[in-house]
C-alpha cells in the first residue's frame, strides 16, 4: 500500500508527472481513436455508395 502511495506521489511531483502522462495518452489516444473511426466510416460509406450505384443499374 505504501509503495503504491509512494509511486503515485512521485516524490512530491505527482501533480505534474501524472497530468503530463495523462495528457499525452489522451491526445495521442484520442487522435488514434478519431482516425480509426473516420476510416471505418469512410469504408462503410464507399461500400454503401457502391451497392446503391450497383442497384440503380
Amino acid at each position: 500500500m505504501n509503495s503504491v502511495d509512494g509511486f503515485l506521489a512521485m516524490g512530491g511531483y505527482g501533480a505534474f508527472v501524472w497530468p503530463a502522462y495523462g495528457l499525452a495518452v489522451l491526445v495521442l489516444g484520442g487522435l488514434a481513436a478519431y482516425s480509426w473511426r473516420r476510416y471505418r466510416a469512410s469504408v462503410a460509406m464507399v461500400d454503401r455508395l457502391r451497392q446503391q450505384s450497383g442497384r440503380s443499374r
Binding site: 482516425s35 473516420r38 476510416y39 469512410s42 469504408v43 464507399v46
Partner: peptide, 17 residues
Amino acid sequence: LIRMRTDLKQRRIRALQ
C-alpha cells in the same frame, strides 16, 4: 497509413457521389 487510406476513401466517395 490509417489517415492516408481514409483520404483515398474520401476521394472515392466524392467520385462515386
